[in-house]
Design a protein around this nucleic acid. Sequence first.
DNA 1: GTGCAGCTTATTGTATACAAATGCCATTCG
DNA 2: CGAATGGCATTTGTATACAATAAGCTGCAC
Lengths: 224, 224
Amino acid sequence: MSRASDRAYNLIRSMILSGELQPGSQIREEALAELCGVSRTPVRDSLRRLEAEMFIRRNDSKRSFVAAWSLDDLEDAFHLRAMLESHAAKRAATRITRDQLARMRFQNAQLKQAVDAIHPDVPRFIDHNRQFHAILLKAAASERLTSMLSQVTEQPVVLRTARQYDLENLRRSHHEHEELLIAFENRDGDWAAAVMTAHIRRAFHAYAEAHSSYTEIGKSNLAA
Amino acid sequence: MSRASDRAYNLIRSMILSGELQPGSQIREEALAELCGVSRTPVRDSLRRLEAEMFIRRNDSKRSFVAAWSLDDLEDAFHLRAMLESHAAKRAATRITRDQLARMRFQNAQLKQAVDAIHPDVPRFIDHNRQFHAILLKAAASERLTSMLSQVTEQPVVLRTARQYDLENLRRSHHEHEELLIAFENRDGDWAAAVMTAHIRRAFHAYAEAHSSYTEIGKSNLAA
DNA sequence: GTGCAGCTTATTGTATACAAATGCCATTCG
DNA sequence: CGAATGGCATTTGTATACAATAAGCTGCAC
């Protein structure tokens, strides 16, 4: 995308993810345009994209609102992601190149370092994790799959408990990745798919756990 | 969508599906704008939507082209569709209401009539078939799933052999639908999912068959 | 007080003009 | 003769003005 349109998209998206734009709140094109320092044209463009990615919903009279997802909706997204990403793992198992495998190993080593360090660096973990999955997706060699997965992978972040799950869970991710790589070395698609399904399901429960405790904190605050 | 934007979207989409806009050919916004009798603004809107639906591709310099899918790409789409739609069937099995089930039965009876008539009406079959699957998807109650499936269901039509597959295959669809309904009556999600996977896979091979013969006719024409 | 009509205002949709980027072709230089 | 470069043409991106539509409000009737 071009400069103005890109800026608007990234800015609006990050405002949704950070919670700056609250779920359920209405979105006005002109207000965002001013915020982004561009005209309504690129903003509209961005809103359409975000709508396709289900970050934004529109009512019958075309007004836009920040999507508000329940925990059930989130589980739904995780189910779909598990299905699609395990399919990707299966495809990748028989298509991955030596080079890609090496790069996945590298990313996995890096993300281990990020959490095993004296001062764990979660954002760094997340970045290497993202790259790990990106290489896998590339190896799966299905544009459609890539396009669909992009619709369900970033979604959970909206609950903002994303980065709160504990280091133990992140270390488990590392080990699951290791197992995945061994399945790849053995070109065992079924194994790879099973590991991936388990990987995503565990991630969901980690999120759900973090979310429920977050919710309870909220509740206790109200009660106090 | 609003009138102008809607018109542009439907027109461009149907021109792609009908082959009027040939796969691989470049698309110019202004030309389409004239064709649709609207300005470039709603055309751009439509192009973005069609791009998200992968009917249109854009190169690095933002020029748009009609997507050209290979048979492999198509099989990929069918694989994804089988996966997603069987998941939908599984969910629907335990959620579907009496009313929805009755409506699915009705649609299936109608599509049987369409192909069993003395003068078979394939477009009518296709319409009832579409509604049958739409009710199922509604019963599955997952917006995300619905949104994703819309990306892979209409795709095959681009090969334009869509309506050419024989009546025998359409009758098989009817019978598979019948079995699906029985699985629903028994609230057996696994059964429903299995029937659906088989249903979609068979549909793919019917398409592939029709396509290969079509291709061969094309080849023999060139050879002649 | 309730509900509806009509007006006012807020918000989105469309057209158009202009800016920016890219591709294309011809020309020139090695 | 081939490759690089410059400028022109084509195409897309952005801003802005205006049109259309929907929401909200005010006041009136019952």
